[in-house]
Amino acid sequence: MQFDSLADFFNMGGYAFYVWLAYGVTFLSIGMLVTHSLRQKRKVLVGISQKIQREERLKENRSTK
């Protein structure tokens, strides 16, 4: 352990702003990238299922007339 107290750790030897800005930006942007990537699959599948439903509706209308 390189720090005497929690306050000492957050202070980062006077470089708190720069160190925490770097770590903050890093983990925030990675978090956003992961969330965006995880949502893609559902978005794609919803799009495909809507397309399937549209095709089926078209098919039904054709057969009734």
Binding site: V46, S49, I52
Partner: peptide, 23 residues
């Protein structure tokens, strides 16, 4: 994985997945 699904929307196995998971 998402890219594979998006590019293979016409394949039966993807359509099965879409029917199971899509709204």
């Amino acid at each position: 994985r998402a890219e594979i699904l998006a590019r293979n929307g016409m394949r039966p196995w993807v359509r099965e997945l879409a029917k199971a998971e899509g709204v």
